[in-house]
Design a protein around this nucleic acid. Structure first.
Lengths: 158, 158
DNA sequence: TCCTATAGTGGGTCTCGACCCACTAATTCT
DNA sequence: AGAATTAGTGGGTCGAGACCCACTATAGGA
């Protein structure tokens, strides 16, 4: 055969494109993937960023609280905290009031890192949302935020 | 300790909530998860639905074309097609023009199934987008569609 | 003091999706 | 005819993420 070039019609079925569910899932995956990719270049995962953000936003906390807040497995958090501590991005100290607890706090280096990661995430965002102008992005952001808050979150999240 | 009840502040870090990237990824995962969950109850996966939709929307095609259109691995498509054929939702026939090809077409039963799955997906959508009214959902859908189309899709998708 | 519950940790397992390789059958080019 | 190419298939691997269990240390109540 010779002339079957015009294949580049990766057009997806309208039946699917018409479902916000589908678009959300697909775009979400892209966003997640690209962000994870960038983080991986630095040897980090999404959870590392989430933990840093939680510490920066809410101050030092016991791992217990991070677990509840972020919805990840205690055992997994221990590992994340380990890595972050080893790299000097967080510090762990026994809580003097209740010595079972380990209070985790972000370090200056951790804050710096977080700032970089945030910038990185925004770069990814610019890529993904390229087709939208500033105003539209704003609208999207607020719609997503409402969806997120309203939704009865189920189980663990990213 | 006694009064630490008001834990239910699973409030996520604003630093993250402020990133559309993050919300997209998180909500997308929820949407995907719930849809997959429902499909699983019927022994189906997302790809099954995608294949059915492609066949319904674009008519009978060689597996080769489905592979290109949907961006999944040829080997994986073979398995999906197998299952769908076994269940009577699609039919496979050697293409008489080029007998290497297997032309896949959707059956009446397949169309019925697809209609059900579509309804199911919309039900999930209602759950996920609960906080938004009809107009807002419309806006969201069109923004997502533009993001999807504009985005230089990378690699395989869901 | 003994008993139960909680915080953290280490070391796994299980499932899924993406991917890859080897192989057959059919086709096309030379 | 012979060589090179393409469609489809079967049988895998690999990595990521969520999850689970057993165990230690500490705390609080009876």
């Amino acid at each position: 055969m010779a002339s079957e070039d015009p294949i580049d019609a990766p057009a997806l079925p309208p039946t699917l494109l018409d479902l916000s569910t589908y678009l959300l899932s697909r775009i979400g995956k892209t966003a997640r993937g690209r962000l994870a990719e960038r983080l991986a270049e630095r040897g980090l995962r999404l959870w590392d960023m989430a933990v840093l953000a939680a510490l920066a936003d809410f101050g030092p906390q016991a791992q217990r609280d991070l677990v509840r807040r972020l919805g990840l497995d205690p055992s997994d958090l221990a590992k994340v905290a380990d890595q972050l501590a080893a790299a000097g991005h967080v510090e762990r100290a026994r809580d003097q009031a209740d010595r079972r607890r380990v209070s985790v706090s972000i370090t200056a280096a951790g804050r710096e890192l977080l700032a970089e990661l945030d910038a990185l995430a925004r770069a990814v965002q610019d890529e993904v949302l390229a087709p939208l102008d500033a105003g539209e992005r704003q609208v999207l952001q607020s719609l997503l935020l409402r969806v997120h808050q309203g939704a009865g979150e189920r189980r663990s999240g990213l």
